[in-house]
Nucleic acid binder design. Structure first.
Lengths: 253, 253
DNA sequence: GCGATCAGCGGCACG
DNA sequence: CGTGCCGTTGATCGC
C-alpha cells in the first residue's frame, strides 16, 4: 500500500473512527520508562479517544501503548527511503511513542456505534455490600455500623460491632488473601484502635489465605473468616450461608 | 457479510493467524467474576495463542477478554434468526465468554511475522542494579552485600552494611512511594532484624513519597532517600549523582 | 488534583 | 505448582 495513501486514510480516521494499521514497524518509547523494539509485523489500533495500542501476534498485553487522551500524528518521512512515521504524544506525564513503518499492509477505519456499558458482578464492593446485610455468616450478632460510624471510614470495607460491644474492622477480599491483605487490615485495625481508644478486632474475610499470611495474621492477633461465594449465571454473585435476600431473588417482587 | 462465510473465514484463521472481527455483539462472561453487556458494535481480536480481546470504540482496556491459552469456537446458531456465536473457553480457572453477533461487518485474518522482543529500560530492577554499583548517592560508605549475604534475600532489592557495621535493607521504587511501600519495607527490615538479631536499618529509595507514607515511615524508624533518575534517549536510565559508569557509556569499549 | 486501593488485574521470578 | 510483587500498570472513588 502506498505510504501517502496510508497517511491520508489514517488522517481521515483519526479522532473520528477506530483506525487499524497492519504492517512492519520498529518502535521507540520514552516517558515514565523507555523501550525499543526492532522491526516486526504488528497491528496498531488508534481509538477516537486517543487510545493507542500496538499488538504483536501473541500475548495479552499491547507491546507498546498510550492511554486515552493521547494525540497522534502521522507523516511520511525521508524522500529517498520513505517511511510512515506515527507519533503518539501525551503530556503529564510527557511521553512519546514513535512508530516507524517502511511499508503499510493495510489501513482500516471502523465506525463502531456502541452506547452500552459493561455490568460486572462479583466485585469486592458487591460482596462487601451483600455481607453487610447479614454478617452472621462471619459471626453471630455482628452489627454493621458503616453508615453511622464517625470515622475515617474511607478505606474500611465493613465497620461493625460485636455482641460484647467491641469494634470490628472487616476487610473483604475476592481472591485468596496474601501478606499484603494482612498488613493492610493491621493498619486499619490499629488506626481505629488508637483513634477510638477501644478494643478493636480485625477480621480478614476471603475465599482463601496463604500459609504465610495466616501465620502473620495470627501473630498480629487478627482473625480470618472464609468467604464462600459463587458467580451466578444471571447478574449477581451469591454468598453461601447468607440468610437475607440476594440480588437475583428480588426480581419476583 | 454472510454469517456462514464469516464463520468459515474465522475458522480458517483460528490458531494460525490474527483474526479480526467487527460488528454488533452482546457479550456474557462467567468465571472468576461475571459480566454482561448489551448489543453494540465492537472489534474482536483473536490471536494465534488464544488471546481473546473485545474492544469498544473508546477506552484503554478490552471490555471483555481471555488470556493466552484460551480455546475459541465459532458457530452459527438458530435457523430462523441466525446469529454467529463465539465462545472463548478456558479452564483453571474455568471461564467462558460468549459473544453473540446478529451480523458481522467484516473479518480479517492477518499473518504477522515478528520475532522481536521488546527491550524496556528504567525498570525498578535496572535502577536497583545501577544503585548497587555505587550506593554513595544514598549514603557514604554503604557496602552492598547482596551476593555474599546468606539471607532470605529473596525479595529485598538491596542488602547492605553501613560504616558502623549495621545491616541496611534498601527498597527501591520507581514511582512515588505510598503506604504500601512503607509497610513492605517494614516487613523486610523486621525479618532481617529478627533472623540476624542485629541492628538493621531500612531505607526507602524512591523519586517521591506521600505525606502519610513519610509520617508512617518515620514513626516506624525507617528512612527515606530521594532517587533522582532520568530516562535516556538510548537504551538506559541514569541516576543523578552516580559516580560509577552507567550502562550507555560502556559501548565505547 | 492527589492519594489509596481494586482489578476477571497480567506477568515474572523464585522456592 | 503456589506465593510474592512489579507494572510505562489502568481505573475508580474519596478527599
Amino acid at each position: 500500500m502506498d505510504l501517502r495513501e496510508a497517511q491520508i486514510e489514517i488522517q481521515r480516521g483519526l479522532r473520528k473512527k477506530l483506525v487499524l494499521i497492519a504492517g512492519p514497524c520498529a518502535i521507540k518509547y520514552k516517558g515514565r520508562a523507555g523501550s525499543k523494539i526492532g522491526e516486526g509485523e504488528r497491528l496498531i489500533l488508534i481509538k477516537r479517544d486517543g487510545t493507542f495500542l500496538v499488538h504483536q501476534n501473541t500475548g495479552f498485553k499491547p507491546v507498546n501503548y498510550q492511554p486515552p487522551g493521547t494525540r497522534v500524528s502521522v507523516k511520511v518521512e525521508n524522500e529517498e527511503n520513505k517511511r510512515l512515521v506515527l507519533k503518539a504524544r501525551r503530556r503529564e506525564p510527557r511521553e512519546l511513542i514513535k512508530v516507524t513503518m517502511p511499508e503499510v499492509h493495510w489501513v482500516q477505519n471502523l465506525e463502531l456505534k456502541d452506547d452500552e456499558q459493561i455490568d460486572v458482578y462479583g466485585t469486592e464492593r458487591e460482596l462487601a455490600d451483600m455481607l453487610m446485610d447479614d454478617l452472621s455468616v462471619i459471626e453471630e450478632d455482628l452489627k454493621a455500623k458503616n453508615k453511622e460510624c464517625p470515622l475515617p471510614q474511607g478505606d474500611i470495607d465493613i465497620f461493625a460491632e460485636d455482641k460484647e460491644g467491641n469494634y470490628v474492622v472487616i476487610e473483604v477480599k475476592r481472591n485468596k488473601a496474601g501478606l499484603k491483605a494482612v498488613t493492610q487490615l493491621k493498619r486499619y485495625t490499629d488506626q481505629v484502635k488508637k483513634s477510638k481508644n477501644k478494643k478493636t478486632r480485625g477480621i480478614l474475610c476471603a475465599p482463601g489465605i496463604t500459609d504465610k499470611a495466616k501465620n502473620h495474621l495470627e501473630k498480629e492477633g487478627l482473625e480470618y473468616s472464609v468467604l464462600d461465594f459463587e458467580i451466578e449465571d444471571f447478574d449477581s454473585a451469591s454468598i453461601k450461608g447468607l440468610r437475607k435476600k440476594q440480588k437475583g431473588l428480588t426480581e419476583f417482587n
